[in-house]
Design a protein around this nucleic acid. Structure first.
Length: 597
RNA sequence: GGGGCGUUAGCUCAGUCGGUCAGAGCAGCGGACUCAUAAUCCGUCGGUCGUCGGUUCAAGCCCGACACGCCCUACCA
């Protein structure tokens, strides 16, 4: 048994989540975590809502609410969406907790103490009316190169040249049209060059493991070549105070949102331990050298997980050119694996909330079964290359694979059991074809398990479905539905017993991908209660400041083992109701029309 | 501009160390069956593996150009 940290990227709390988020890391991380629990590992899966940063502030202003009000609303929405999808977090929390503030500040302070936070002056754009940093992309003006009037502060969309916002002719704020002030401002920069050698050693060691996806490790090594110090504070009044004398009380200086967002993996682990009543227990996943950690995210986050976060940890431990000492958290484990997905596109275009080209998770969940969405993501998600979601494919995959392939096998098996015996019958002598199908299905545990361990979800799903096909073929070969006579009674019992066993095994194979329906199938086969434990949204109070907020948590200790569980003769089988809903073809047109609105 | 990825059957994609690698699923076509949500099973049609050149006894696989597409490269998170 190994300790496994499943660290899932923190959704930004600027609104409900769209399909791209859950396809990239929400569902894949949950499938992995569930499988690792089934394999007997001690899994800690954490995530939360990322709530700081300029976009939240801008959005809150535009809606006439405070940033805190905005994130309170959105955090609750996101927590429910993820829980409804079945994502089995041990803790899904948020970045505005007292605990998170304290942990982020401890990290920052120790990195500073070790000399890896260097103070520098930089030229920045400030909004004159609010005193807040105006990020480059919130500035527009006329491009000095091509004269395009709508150039952004960082790049001109017309000529493609990279720009400095100061170069723009007649720069203006995209938020309110005012002319930004370009001022000298003091900030702390993470001294990445001083950590580069340690980072390279770490990444080369990870590369040698051969387990990272090729593009992730290549990209990570590549960006080391022109590594520069990176600002870790901002002129903004929404965020975590800089924990240094002379800075702590400055109302407009806060930690850069990305500095604190990645700290969330550690702070959430600590919050989880505190809520368990065992406040040091997080150390088993973070301090013990043989613990494993898997970080799940989209490809736009690779930099932050393979460079910034390891650099923060190395700086915290004093493992850079300038030396230093670890802080109170001790020696912390660097990511074992950075599991980055590509992008999900929607009807061939990138998701875009601002352009309304989007599908919200909660809309899908109100209209369709959560496992239909999970199945699509598992079978056709953006695992190693961009993938396209279309309603036609969604309906097609659901109907022909999930319903007609797997659901139908469950349904026909249960119906025959119910009609012939009303229970799982006693198994007689096995014929060679019985032994063959039982062996083929059992092999699935090794094959599918090996793939899931390596986060090869698409292939794992395809392999599990291939096993389902073998069992359907077994029914065609043995034709139990034709065994009517009393003289065939024993043979019928044996075939149906074997079938019940195979369906039970397939259900286990698919349980990481389809936890909700695994529970339904479990009951169809006469089981009690749930097969796979499910997460819950629980209202808690902040451990430090007493405010109430919802979290996702759950007790997953009853997770079944990965392997065959012998079915028990005599288990009653009721007349089954279909576990999977077939979608009408009209869904395609309906959803496309909905998107066009 | 710099870096990365992709291009294989009508569609979506697998193809590890170069040597039965020309593959799967879906769609199409033909047949079988009736337990099952007209579901299932069997068979079958179908590809100059983006283009050009090179290395090799042997190349989707390695190398070099080129074409097309996508992504990363932000004081957005």
């Amino acid at each position: 048994m190994t300790r496994v940290l499943a660290a899932v990227a923190w959704p930004y709390a600027n609104g409900p989540r769209h399909l791209g988020h859950v396809a990239g890391f929400g569902v894949p991380s949950d499938v992995f975590a569930r499988f690792m629990r089934m394999s007997g590992h001690d899994v800690l899966m954490v995530s939360g809502s990322d709530e700081h940063g300029t976009p939240i502030l801008v959005l809150a202003d535009s809606q006439g609410v405070t940033a805190r009000e905005l994130v309170d609303t959105n955090h609750a929405i996101i927590a429910h969406e993820l829980a409804d999808l079945g994502c089995s977090y041990d803790l899904y929390t948020r970045t505005t907790t007292g605990n998170h503030y304290a942990v982020a500040q401890e990290l920052f302070a120790q990195v500073w103490k070790n000399g890896y936070m260097i103070e520098r002056t930089q030229k920045g754009a400030i909004s004159p009316s609010t005193g807040r940093t105006l990020p480059d992309r919130y500035i527009e003006g006329t491009c000095p190169i091509c004269g395009y009037a709508e150039a952004r502060g960082d790049q001109c969309d017309n000529c493609g040249n990279q720009l400095e916002p100061e170069d723009l002719i007649e720069p203006r704020s995209k938020i309110n049209g005012e002319t930004p002030d370009f001022v000298e401002t003091q900030h702390f920069f993470l001294d990445l060059p001083a950590l580069a050698e340690s980072l390279r050693a770490y990444l080369e060691e990870r590369e040698a493991s051969g387990t990272w996806r090729p593009n992730v490790i290549k990209f990570s090594l590549n960006i080391l070549d022109d590594i520069k110090p990176r600002a870790m504070t901002r002129d903004i009044d929404w965020g975590i105070p800089v924990p240094l004398d002379g800075w702590r009380d400055l109302p407009t200086k806060k930690l850069y949102v990305w500095f604190d967002a990645v700290v969330g993996y550690l702070s959430a682990s600590i919050e989880w331990a505190r809520r368990q009543g065992n406040p040091e227990r997080w150390r088993e996943w973070w301090n013990e050298a043989d613990a494993l950690s898997y970080y799940f995210m989209g490809k736009d986050n690779i930099t932050f997980h393979s460079q910034i976060w390891p650099a923060e940890l190395l700086g915290y431990m004093g493992k850079g050119d300038k030396g230093g000492e670890p802080g109170i958290y001790g020696e912390l484990n660097l990511p074992t694996e950075v599991v980055s997905s590509e992008y999900l596109t929607m009807e061939s275009q990138q998701f875009s909330t601002s352009r309304g080209h989007t599908i919200l998770v909660r809309d899908v969940l109100t209209r369709y079964q959560p496992d239909a969405l999970r199945y699509f993501i598992c079978a056709a998600g953006p695992e190693t290359s961009d993938a396209d979601f279309t309603w036609r494919d969604f309906v097609q995959r659901t109907n022909s694979e999930l319903v007609a392939g797997w659901g139908n096998l469950v349904q026909r098996t249960a119906t025959m059991l119910h009609k012939s015996f009303g229970e799982i019958p006693v198994c007689g002598p096995l014929a060679s074809e019985d032994k063959a199908v039982l062996a083929a299905v059992e092999t699935g545990f090794e094959v599918v398990g090996g793939l899931l361990r390596r986060q090869r979800l698409r292939q794992a799903t395809a392999e599990a479905m291939r096993v389902v096909g073998e069992v359907n073929a077994y029914i065609s070969r043995t034709e139990p539905f034709r065994m009517k006579g009393e003289d065939q009674r024993e043979r019928l019992a044996t075939v149906l017993h074997v079938l019940a066993q195979c369906v039970s095994d397939c259900n286990t194979l698919l349980a990481p991908m389809l936890p909700h329906s695994s529970n339904a199938v479990h009951r169809v086969l006469g089981g009690e209660g749930d097969f796979m434990p499910m997460p819950q949204v629980v209202e808690v109070t902040d451990l430090d400041d007493g405010r109430a907020y919802p979290i996702i948590t759950g007790d997953y200790s009853a997770t079944p083992a990965w392997g065959r569980r012998p079915v028990v003769a005599g288990t009653p089988i009721a007349k089954p109701a279909p576990a999977f809903v077939k979608l009408d073809e009209s869904v395609v047109a309906e959803e496309l029309a909905r998107m066009a609105d």
